[in-house]
Amino acid sequence: MPLLSAKLIRKSYKVSNNPFKQRYLEVLKGISFTLNPGQTLAVVGESGSGKSTLARILVGAEQPDKGQLFFQDKDILQDKHFPWYQNMRMIFQNPATSLNPRATILQTLEEPLINAGQLNHHQRLERIAEVLELVGLRSEHAQRYPHTFSGGQRQRIAIARALMLQPKVIVADEPVSALDVSVQAQIINLLIELQEKLELAYVFISHDLGLVQHFSDKVLVMHNGQQEEYGRVQEVFSQPQSSYTIELLKASAGYKRKS
């Protein structure tokens, strides 16, 4: 039984407010995949291809127009009481803007625990210390504000926040694109370590095919909202079927001078 499976997810946005001439932009044109515990699905494609829209749908921040989403075989789009927060969480590209600058790390990390209402104050502090250590920070860090941390440390804090309620799936939308390569490698290593320890499943959105190849089990290639290709990374990368995938792979193999 897969942990998460998406079936023909579709989404359009209204792009004109004229009631006589309604125009819609189809952003997702039928996306399907399955994901097992401890697995990573990479989602790749150019900007505007619909990756972030898919991510928002996967964490319940947005409703698709059509399609189904199963979590452990439960049809969660039909379930009004599905606890999204406890099962799927998101990490964003820019840790500088995704953390509240006026809240200490403690406040940021405690918020999901308070909302879930399962732990008392003492247990919450314990959980925070435990998760900070898990992401390579120390419990003293909890008293500080986001601006006192480097970009890489802030991304660790964002990962800690996502882990507070022990989710099964993390949706990471370009989590290392804004970081320097030497720091990017630390965060990727951390994600690998957490996956091994916690059996996390990742949906990993990235435009860096080198990272995707290193880090993922499956890959979904998107182009203008279309699912161009989906399969195991080795297979898709060694025997791409769609012409768009071939073009993308060629471009990512590093720049080759024309002449």
Partner: peptide, 16 residues
């Protein structure tokens, strides 16, 4: 940086 076109073993750590 992992180089595109290389095959990596699952879970291999990156140098940093």
């Amino acid at each position: 940086v992992p180089h595109f076109g290389m095959r990596y073993k699952k879970g291999r750590r990156l140098f940093n």
